[in-house]
C-alpha cells in the first residue's frame, strides 16, 4: 500500500488525537499488522528486502 496525501492526513490526525495514548497506538498497530502483513496472500505479502542493485540483474 503506497502512502497518499489523504492517508497521510488521516494518520497525522490520529497521531495528534488518539495516538497520544499508548494503548491506542498499539491497537492500531495490531490492526494494521493483520490487515497489511498477515492477512495478505503470499504473493502480495510485504517483503523486507533491500532491493538494491545486483550486477546479475543485467544478465
Amino acid at each position: 500500500m503506497l502512502m497518499t496525501t489523504s492517508k497521510l492526513i488521516v494518520l497525522r490526525l490520529f497521531n495528534a488525537t488518539f495516538g497520544r495514548f499508548a494503548v491506542m497506538n498499539e491497537g492500531l498497530r495490531w490492526i494494521l499488522v493483520r490487515l497489511l502483513i498477515k492477512g495478505r496472500s503470499k504473493r502480495k505479502a510485504y517483503n523486507a528486502s533491500a532491493r538494491f542493485f545486483d550486477i546479475r540483474e543485467l544478465d
Binding site: M1, L2, M3, T4, T5, K7, L8, R51
Partner: peptide, 18 residues
Amino acid sequence: RTHGCCDRAYWHYRQTDF
C-alpha cells in the same frame, strides 16, 4: 505499480506521498 520510479523514499520506504 511504481516501476521506473527512482525516488526510493517513495516507492520502497513509503516515507513520502509523492
